[in-house]
Design a protein around this nucleic acid. Structure first.
Length: 445
RNA sequence: GGAGGGGUGGCAGAGCGGCUGAAUGCGGCGGUCUCGAAAACCGUUAAGCCGGCCAACCCGGCUUCCGGGGUUCAAAUCCCCGCCCCUCCGCCA
């Protein structure tokens, strides 16, 4: 959520920033709605002040035993209350209009983000490793996996529907090995491990920005409960209340761990990591990546989340990205890092690095991690603050960051393609062998 | 699923319907003392919003004691509904 005060004070800056990320969010509609809101509020508060004053006077009279003198004042307050009731509903409406607009505004890009229209204008920052030179035609993982008997796409469809994956034998073991390898690596680097719920309520998904704007991306069928009955986010957002959603990423739950809390500056930065399954409707991606396990409805991910002060969040983003890259380097998978341009960034991010791994089967780099600094955007939605008495009075919003470290299914696919041999077998990279019971090679069985 | 108890400030924990935005303790901040620190003592310390042209300080107002509704001139305090938490029982991976 953007700072309403910033929009009011410097609308042109906001207008320019939003235009650079190709948002159609209407700054002027907000300013108009906000002005209206303040007008109504001023009127309402004047009446409330009058009522409070009169009521107090009645209290004095009652105390002095002059109850008879109070009846005129009582009548006056009754009249004021009728007007207040009318203004209150007007105030609720104007406030709701402002909240609704605010809830749908994307974050502003950081000054260091390159300006661009779409993914073609993202900027490559580095490359690591050299794509292998094959002396045979490398296969895609959707051919390798089934041939090895470790991925079964057909039966996954039978169990659920298309875009689901069924792993078997060494494939299932490899998935589990990767999860443990990634968790151990990040934990060794100082990330605290968590095991969160895979379903989350409305307020949680509002906090990280998935709701109210992106509900169609989330799974919610057959998972309703009463958990949001007392939803405090206002009518518009709470139309979705009463539902639990399958999390699209652990970012959602890890970030909301501290929703509504005031942290102590001495705790920061907090570095968290968790493995969870992730669920995405993939609405609107019909026809894209229909083969293989690149774009599926359920996948595993090891996710990093940080809470940092505004002063350190830029640094923390660099370190988090390096931490994700560490996994690729330990697995010796060639990759590149790109910085997303303004037009390609996600809703909540001020800056995002994507890591793309080399996929010989597609002869291309494919996204395998996305690391973002969300600034105070999510912290404002989720009310996550910190206190630093030596530096300032009261509390301030923290900065939140998140990054995949890594998407597990895509890593598995990348391993198959990069480590495939002419005979169709796949070598296990050394870093992973301890997690595979010493297995050095997957062969057809 | 059944029975009971509870949700108050950063935390713990009081709170006869008006003098309670809220006692007290802890924590934080400032000070006294000290070479310095600890201890002790003194003071101070909730948030959000609106306004005072802008910003800091400050001043005024409104709202906020889980959420929503009701009673009343007046609600943290009374009534109703909901949510959440705790304890006991039942069932269960």
């Amino acid at each position: 959520m953007l700072d309403a005060k910033l929009i009011r004070d410097d609308p042109q800056r906001v207008r320019d920033a939003l235009r650079s990320r190709h948002s159609s969010w209407d700054v002027d509609a907000f300013l108009t709605a906000d002005l209206k809101r303040r007008e109504v509020l001023a009127e309402l508060e004047a009446l409330q002040a009058r009522r409070n004053e009169t009521s107090k006077a009645i209290g004095e009279l009652m105390k002095q035993g002059q109850a008879d003198k109070a009846s005129a004042s009582k009548e006056e307050v009754r009249a004021i209350n009728e007007q207040i009731a009318i203004l209150e509903s007007a105030q609720r409406a104007t406030q709701a209009a402002v909240d609704e607009l605010l809830a749908t505004a994307p974050n502003l890009p950081d000054a260091t983000v390159p300006v661009g229209a779409d993914e073609t204008e993202n900027v490559e920052l580095k490359r690591w490793g050299t794509p292998r030179d094959f002396d045979f035609e490398p296969q895609a993982h959707w051919d390798l996996g089934p041939a090895l008997g470790i991925i079964d796409f057909e039966r996954a469809v039978k169990l659920a529907e298309s875009r689901f994956v069924l792993l078997a034998g060494a494939g299932a073991r490899l998935e589990r090995a990767l999860i443990n390898f990634m968790l151990d690596t990040h934990a060794d680097a100082g990330f605290k491990e968590w095991w969160p719920p895979a379903l989350a309520n409305t307020e949680t998904l509002f906090g990280t920005g998935q709701l109210p704007k992106f509900e169609e991306d989330l799974y919610k069928t057959a998972t309703t409960s009463d958990a949001n009955e007392g939803c405090s986010l206002g009518d518009k957002v709470c139309q979705t209340a009463g539902k639990l959603y399958l999390i699209p990423t652990a970012e959602v739950v890890l970030t909301n761990i501290h929703r509504g809390e005031v942290l102590d500056a001495s705790q920061l930065p907090l570095r968290y990591v968790a493995y969870t399954p992730c669920f995405r409707e993939e609405a609107g991606s019909a026809g894209r990546d229909t083969r293989g396990m690149i774009r599926v409805h359920q996948f595993d991910k090891v996710e990093m989340v940080k809470f940092a002060t505004p002063e350190t969040s830029a640094d923390e983003l660099e370190h988090m990205t390096l931490e994700a890259e560490k996994i690729l380097e330990l697995l010796e998978l060639p990759y590149r890092r790109i910085v997303l341009c303004t037009g390609d960034m996600g809703f909540s991010a001020t800056k995002t690095y994507d890591l793309e791994v080399w996929m010989p089967g597609s002869n291309d780099y494919r996204e395998i991690s996305s690391c973002s600094d969300c600034g105070d955007f999510q912290a404002r939605r989720a009310q996550i603050k910190y206190r630093d008495p030596a530096q300032f009075k009261g509390s301030r919003l923290v900065h939140t960051l998140n990054g995949s470290g890594l998407a597990v299914g895509r890593t598995l696919a990348a391993l198959l393609e990069n480590y495939q041999q002419a005979d169709g077998s796949v070598i296990i990279p050394e870093a992973l062998r301890p997690y595979m019971g010493g297995l050095e090679r997957i062969t057809a069985s």
